[in-house]
Design a protein around this nucleic acid. Sequence first.
DNA 1: AATGAATGAGCCTTCATTCAT
DNA 2: GATGAATGAAGGCTCATTCAT
Lengths: 234, 234, 234, 234
Amino acid sequence: MSTDDTRTRILNAAGPVFAVKGFADATVRDICQAAEVNVASVNYHFGDKEQLYIETVKRAHELKVRQVNLPDWSESTPPANKLRDFVRTLITRMLGTHAAPWQSTLMMREVLHPTAACRALVKDYFRPEFNVLISVLREMVKEGTPDYKLHQIAFSILGQCLHYRVAGDVVAIIIDEQERSEHYSVAQLADHIAEFSLAALGQIQPYSNDAAHAPQECGEHSSTQRSDEIFSTE
Amino acid sequence: MSTDDTRTRILNAAGPVFAVKGFADATVRDICQAAEVNVASVNYHFGDKEQLYIETVKRAHELKVRQVNLPDWSESTPPANKLRDFVRTLITRMLGTHAAPWQSTLMMREVLHPTAACRALVKDYFRPEFNVLISVLREMVKEGTPDYKLHQIAFSILGQCLHYRVAGDVVAIIIDEQERSEHYSVAQLADHIAEFSLAALGQIQPYSNDAAHAPQECGEHSSTQRSDEIFSTE
Amino acid sequence: MSTDDTRTRILNAAGPVFAVKGFADATVRDICQAAEVNVASVNYHFGDKEQLYIETVKRAHELKVRQVNLPDWSESTPPANKLRDFVRTLITRMLGTHAAPWQSTLMMREVLHPTAACRALVKDYFRPEFNVLISVLREMVKEGTPDYKLHQIAFSILGQCLHYRVAGDVVAIIIDEQERSEHYSVAQLADHIAEFSLAALGQIQPYSNDAAHAPQECGEHSSTQRSDEIFSTE
Amino acid sequence: MSTDDTRTRILNAAGPVFAVKGFADATVRDICQAAEVNVASVNYHFGDKEQLYIETVKRAHELKVRQVNLPDWSESTPPANKLRDFVRTLITRMLGTHAAPWQSTLMMREVLHPTAACRALVKDYFRPEFNVLISVLREMVKEGTPDYKLHQIAFSILGQCLHYRVAGDVVAIIIDEQERSEHYSVAQLADHIAEFSLAALGQIQPYSNDAAHAPQECGEHSSTQRSDEIFSTE
DNA sequence: AATGAATGAGCCTTCATTCAT
DNA sequence: GATGAATGAAGGCTCATTCAT
């Protein structure tokens, strides 16, 4: 797998460009210039611009999944800890900036406007993780809770997480820079969402009570980057 | 103010086109053809394509707000009811399908990728409603709760609401048609989100307890369409 | 002759615009905006853009001629003085900046690229003055000098004068600002051209001799502006 | 360097079009149609219309200079002969019609209204020849003659030469066809201008004297076409 | 496999002109 | 006479794609 052949160079260059500009605004020339290859290469290797886009999205998905995996849970891991882990993993995967964030951006574009060719991909990617979340939740709710209820709870949790990527620009507009720098690290957001959701599920004291809401560490979790800034302060 | 003049015709035609195709992919020709006016009219009435886009986004928000307004609250309205109203209004605005849904789609585009030209616009339009939510929340949390905490709670609620529009396609893939038709009406989703959030805030019993979670009607609210299907079953 | 009717306003506005931008680059909108009249007025009053242009050129000609006339010569006025007067009048007419110089610019455009419709105009304008110059020259050359010779001498003198308007931009590029400000006033250029030509005609000592070439004042001439800068020092 | 490649074809086609119509009126489509190439080729090879124009102007000057060069002067060549050569070369370059005259027309356009983009170009191309003229003149005037005086003399000579191209149409209107055919060949005009100027400089007898003004051949000069008609007799 | 050149469709915009009031 | 709106024809330019080498 030569990492330097034309095809790979194009793919590496296409990711960020598509992520930043979107499919319509990105030009084949931009990508080829970034990849330092000939304009005709795209058509030769991928057929046309759209095929290149699809390949790029696929690749983004693979890279992202490989990057941040859910921790291994033992049978004795309390469900609340599992939920905290889940949220942290999701947030980190989407907002973590240690690597180029273009993968998330690109995938998010697909979530918002699924290309026909990418529908299956989206399904394969989200469904398994969705199931994990459901099983974690099932441990926390009263027995007999109907599936649809679990699904809605799951979406409530996912919605909170996705929001910071999906509406990240709006957040950056509404919240001033200082507050963002102090309270919007990946870890802080993950903690908040976990606590909020656990409170809703009756696993901890609700927000309006005096009970401490200090984020509770869960040993198994290999949280990588607690204090990263997630919103650029352009 | 005739409702049939060229300017209005263009604006009406531009909405759906921009919503479906986005700014880059939408062509002035398409819009003018749909509006049955000359191509040069856009330039005459709006200056250029970008100004037309901005006007269209503005109009989308105005129409949407006019369509579904927050109810009037008396001083004695309990904060929990206010929150329920807020969530319902938001969900209805975004998912209610009684009129053309292009307004929501267009605004959502701005939420996801604010155009440089629309940043200020976004700020002016979203900020006020964000502030309403904050003030409602402040009535429910312990005195002294810092602003940043309120902001994050607000985003947790907004995130849940937006999720069904933003990731609507993914939801439609994961949840089968029958469940969607039975449990994903605008009203049902609004109820769920309200209950989930109120539980997190300690205003009602948490989800895992036995206490009933039957949606609680709040008299003041003039909810219009409780049982609309929000996901097309194409 | 109301000086404020639409037609006149357009004509007044069109002059400078056509002079600066030329026919092709000037837009009807520019002109109408400057004249503060409706765009449709041009077509109403002049038929189309080209007719307006022709009218504007005509008007430029009339204004210019009225502005700087040749002085009245008595029968005893020496021919050399007549030549000096002629040159000064010509240079002043073309470069004098006391009024808007757009008339000269516009007429010069016609000289360079005569519109079919303006050919007669050019002829009527230049021919009479050309004849004056010829008759002055005839007083200075040996009897029997053929007409063609006189014509060529006349063109040599005219060419020197026109050059500063025609190639004014190039002069401004080649000659630095200081020299222009010190030695390129209307009066100085007129003096130089007159002396150079008189020397060629044997009326005064040639340039390479020691004989003074101090510009010789000729009483009859009402030279208006001796020290004006003729090249803007943008 | 095939003489038939697209780039050259465009350049060859652009010359006459720009010369006849000017920058604003010439259309890229016209040029490409004349060159029998695709419209996009201009963009590919030159970037945009303006760059093509600049290249065309450059080329016009190079071609013209290559066609008609100043003769080589030995150290003993008398300055008067140099001046005659200079004038003849200039006139020939501008009026010689043996090849396509678009080069002169195009350059003359720049002389009259230097494009912002071409200002530096104009300076670089005209300055050297201007300097040659100045150095020739310096040999003929009294030592100590100030620079500005030399410059003005130079412009007097240049002005006479340019006049026949710049105001050629007007000359053709004023001078009847027969006289033009008998006395307005390139060589005759060059001779006249040289003699007139030399007389002004005291190098030869002035015009009004009896001294013969028969054009004096200067051996070194390889004048190519002495009897060309310079004004078309359409 | 790779390249530089070439292509044609299409987009946004501008402009002179006309129309209805 | 005068106006604001509307029109259609281009014009310059960009872009994805293809061709010949």
